[in-house]
Write a protein that binds this DNA or RNA. Structure first.
Lengths: 116, 116
DNA sequence: ATGGTATACTGCTGTATAGGAATATAGCAA
DNA sequence: TTGCTATATTCCTATACAGCAGTATACCAT
């Protein structure tokens, strides 16, 4: 397939991963999977302070991970796509593989202990 | 599906994304897609200094993105799985969608200009 | 042993950014 | 207008980390 990727594209890709590289933002995205919420809702569902919620939402919005609509005083945020969860699923599968491998090592060690 | 994700798991997921959130590491991974390489090879193919290559490889190795084997003086690094490219493909698809959307907006603006 | 090469590590500096507190803006009500 | 609420932004501090230079370690050759 493609071999050479320009530095600009690498930076764009890295930028997207950087947004996902924060537990608070992942938590917000996870909550939004249950449906759209206002900033105040998110303060309640996540326990974060208002400034924190708002700032993370700006980032997520600017990079296209969430959409929003204004209704009176409130701003409703929602997931822009389910891609985030595709990404997380892949990562989680990896975590599972790692955990399994550690488990195997532990069992192997236990086996050696019994033999010795 | 699952709704509640523990802070620990969120941190683990974020940690994985953080490793991918760096253009230098993405470039190294991209090069490794062409086959295993030593640190010295990578210095040549990426243009990075030795310390830089080595440090990024440590990070990638510690989080399971690459494997390595030692042969004499050399250490050969290779991709641990193709998952990285699954992840990048999803991100790239998103970038394409964003680009298309910007393009549409531009064309719409051009159209308005012609009408006016 | 000595010397040379490949890789890893340490200490440092600058930069980016997360989070808190405070302030600013936007929209609604009276 | 004034006051109130929801959201955004600004300023600040602390932390994390990328990259550099230098040094240390590991391995091979002689």
């Amino acid at each position: 397939m493609k071999r050479i990727v320009s530095p600009e594209v690498l930076e764009l890709i890295a930028e997207r991963f950087r947004v996902l590289a924060d537990p608070a933002r992942l938590q917000i995205l996870n909550v939004l999977q249950g449906g759209e919420q206002t900033v105040t809702d998110l303060m309640r569902t996540t326990g974060f302070r208002q400034a924190k919620v708002s700032k993370h939402l700006q980032l997520l919005y600017n990079l296209g991970f969430v959409d929003r609509r204004k209704e009176g005083l409130h701003v409703y945020y929602r997931l822009a796509s389910e891609d985030v969860f595709l990404l997380c699923d892949i990562v989680c599968r990896r975590l599972q593989v790692e955990a399994d491998r550690r488990q195997e090592v532990l069992e192997e060690l236990a086996g050696l202990g019994a033999e010795a």
